[in-house]
């Protein structure tokens, strides 16, 4: 067993420290000890804190930081599962047309202002979620064979095809609308942001990821068994078809949920599982929890940088996840390359 148990406490500590720091950083700087006092008071410690500090730390920043942690954990977890399930190193959470479909939904709302009879105007999040589900149904319909088998190669290709259609639709609508502000809002949305996450959003995100984590951890052995392909998995007692359907649906629904709150945040789901595999090995009972922790850490750091690097403006978080993650990934890849 490589690297032993040390990564768990190390990553957990790093995540806690990053979150504490993130709560203090922003347009108003708040001392970490004050941040700790605010949090402690909310958990029942009898401390005196100002209403102002409480409002900034607990009402505004805490949901965003928790949302970032949940989103990062969820994306990394889904990426790890999909890479193993499809035996494809380039698999990532948006594999099943989720980001494309979500963009179609979001653009329809942002530019065209879709409304549903009896419900009224649809929010961007709801539109994105509906779009993601639509794309998912289309991808699975294209990929599933007559017998209900779900060959991973076809899933990947169907995802690519649906993604292209969605991208074409999105570009068409944005260009034809002639509304420059709409174009900017759409671009912002597709690069992802946690700016809109409030407490209800944060709690929802945490709940989605917690439930998914428990469900997925029941499949650690099954995912290990896919190392040598589907016949090997089958001969190790894994019900290949049921496992594929279950895990593809769970990861797709989780990703659709995340996307509807934050937009499509790239890189985390693709790279974090590879990083963890390089350091801690590919066994899933370690890979999955460590990926979740590492993904949470990366996204908390990236989101903090996104809202604090440039005064008065947010940098799209997708840009930062790539800037933070890519060099680390390149370095680890080189190191691995030398040892084999």
């Amino acid at each position: 067993m490589r690297a032993g148990w040390a990564p768990y406490p190390l990553l957990a500590l790093a995540l806690a420290a990053a979150m504490l720091l993130a709560l203090g950083v922003g347009s108003v700087r708040i001392d970490p000890t004050v941040v700790a006092e605010v949090v402690a008071r909310r958990f029942g410690a009898g401390l005196d804190v100002s209403v102002f500090d409480d409002r900034i730390v607990w009402q505004l920043r805490m949901p965003r930081v928790l949302g970032a942690a949940a989103t990062g954990a969820g994306l990394a977890l889904c990426g790890a599962v999909l890479q193993s399930l499809t035996r494809n190193d380039l698999a990532e959470p948006y594999l099943l047309g989720i980001s494309g479909g979500a963009a179609v939904g979001a653009v329809s709302v942002l530019v065209l202002g879709v409304s549903v009879a009896g419900v009224g105007a649809v929010g961007v999040g709801a539109g994105a979620f509906a779009g993601a589900l639509g794309a998912l149904v289309l991808v699975l319909g294209l990929a599933a064979g007559r017998t209900g088998a779900l060959p991973p190669a076809r899933v990947v290709l169907a995802g690519a095809a649906v993604g292209q259609i969605c991208a074409a639709y999105t570009s068409f609508i944005v260009i034809m609308s002639g509304d420059h502000d709409a174009a900017r809002r759409v671009l912002n949305w597709t690069l992802g942001s946690l700016a809109g996450v409030r407490w209800t959003g944060a709690v929802t995100l945490l709940a989605i990821v917690a439930v998914a984590f428990v469900l997925i951890m029941a499949y650690t052995s099954a995912l290990d068994a896919f190392a040598f392909g589907e016949s090997a998995a089958g001969s190790l007692g894994v019900n290949v078809r049921a496992t594929r359907w279950t895990l593809l649906l769970v990861t797709a629904l989780v990703t659709a949920g995340l996307v509807s709150f934050t937009g499509a945040i790239g890189f985390v789901g693709l790279v974090v599982p590879h990083l963890v595999r390089l350091v801690c090995g590919p066994t899933h009972r370690r890979l999955l929890p460590l990926s979740a922790l590492a993904g949470a850490f990366l996204l908390v750091v990236a989101d903090t940088l996104a809202r604090s690097l440039v005064d008065g403006q947010e940098i799209p978080i997708g840009v930062l996840t790539a800037v933070v993650g890519a060099p680390v990934f390149a370095w680890l890849l080189r190191r691995e390359g030398r040892s084999t």
């Binding site: 035996r87 951890m217 190392a227 040598f228 392909g229 001969s235 190790l236 590919p282």
Partner: peptide, 28 residues
């Protein structure tokens, strides 16, 4: 099987341990 292949960085022992999956509990 003929020509078992994987791109995962598994050790030989981890490959042999796969054989215990049918005896493992569902939860890690």
């Amino acid at each position: 099987e003929q020509q078992a292949a994987t791109s995962l960085p598994l050790t030989a022992r981890q490959v042999v341990e796969l054989g215990r999956i049918p005896y493992r509990g569902r939860w890690p």
